[in-house]
Write a protein that binds this DNA or RNA. Structure first.
Length: 110
DNA sequence: GTGTTGACAATCA
DNA sequence: CTGATTGCCAACA
């Protein structure tokens, strides 16, 4: 059942993308949080989905658990954060990270 | 079937 | 706070 397996992968991806699309402006979620929220897979699987099909959603709202930004897209994400008012934290060297303590979204239900 | 890699995470030094 | 190590899950050669 290779077709079924592919269908499952697409379904998982669809769920992840749906969750990401549900994240309100000014908030973020970590890969592990999304995996935990879905109750399946893991942070890496979420990361894979984002890498493949994340281009159609607010990928900048999905970051690492420690609040670090995506490698290679820091400038883009930073612009989004400043525009949406996402709580940021400067490290002094130009290293900006999201303040997970405040920006972390609890989900549709809180 | 085995080993390596990866948009990760938690823990330890 | 930074860096290194281990654990996890799935894809890929």
């Amino acid at each position: 059942m290779t077709a079924a397996r592919r269908a499952e992968a697409t379904e998982f991806a669809d769920r992840v993308l749906d969750v990401v699309d549900t994240i309100p402006p000014g908030r973020v979620l970590s890969y592990g949080d999304i995996a935990e929220y879905l109750g399946q897979g893991g942070p890496r699987q979420v990361g894979r989905v984002m890498a493949l099909w994340g281009g159609g959603v607010a990928w900048w709202r999905v970051i690492h658990a420690d609040g670090s930004l995506l490698a290679g897209h820091e400038r883009e994400a930073l612009a989004r954060y400043q525009r949406e008012g996402t709580p940021l934290r400067a490290a002094g060297d130009g290293q900006f990270r999201v303040d997970m303590r405040r920006a972390r979204w609890a989900g549709p239900v809180s």
